[in-house]
């Protein structure tokens, strides 16, 4: 299969600048999940779109060099395990799965709301990586024309 070269220099240049802004915005949405609209899922989707932006602009080969896909797989699984782990600590500390066991802090401060920001970060990592990996896996998938039936 012919390797993809990506898009034109204009797109590449714009992407090179804008992708970091997209990442920062995604991280902002994740970290302020307990204060403003959005949260782990929404921010995660934005981060995944940042990755996809690079993927579309620069092509598959560049992504292979730029990202360690194996590490992303591990990050995805680890964040899910940590999420369940926080839930289990909740059982151990207060008796309910995912129950809050940290100080709730002051309302509207960044470091507040107990375990919710932690869970948002883990969901953000999971969603951000997983959505990108779904598209990545689909791009690796070759359709075998004329299969068995």
């Amino acid at each position: 299969m012919k390797s993809q070269e990506g898009m034109t220099i204009i797109v590449k240049t714009v992407t090179r600048i804008s992708v970091w802004l997209i990442f920062v915005y995604g991280i902002y949405i994740i970290f302020h999940g307990h204060l403003t609209p959005g949260g782990g899922f929404g921010g995660g989707v934005i981060i995944a779109l940042g990755f996809l932006n690079v993927f579309l602009a620069y092509g598959k080969e560049y992504i292979k060099k730029w990202l360690n896909i194996g590490l992303l797989h591990d990050l995805e699984a680890t964040s899910a395990i940590l999420f369940v782990g926080i839930g289990i600590i909740g059982i151990a500390m207060t008796g309910g799965f995912l129950a809050n066991f940290l100080s709730k802090g002051t309302l509207f401060r960044l470091f507040s709301a107990g375990t919710i920001p932690l869970l948002n970060i883990l969901i953000g990592a999971k969603v951000g990586v997983a959505l990108f990996l779904v598209v990545w896996s689909l791009s690796l998938f070759h359709i075998d024309e004329g299969g068995e039936q």
Binding site: A80, I81, F97
Partner: peptide, 12 residues
């Protein structure tokens, strides 16, 4: 919890 944890541990 157990099957979810097992699924993610297998993945990792």
């Amino acid at each position: 919890i157990i099957p979810l944890l097992a699924a993610f541990l297998i993945t990792l």
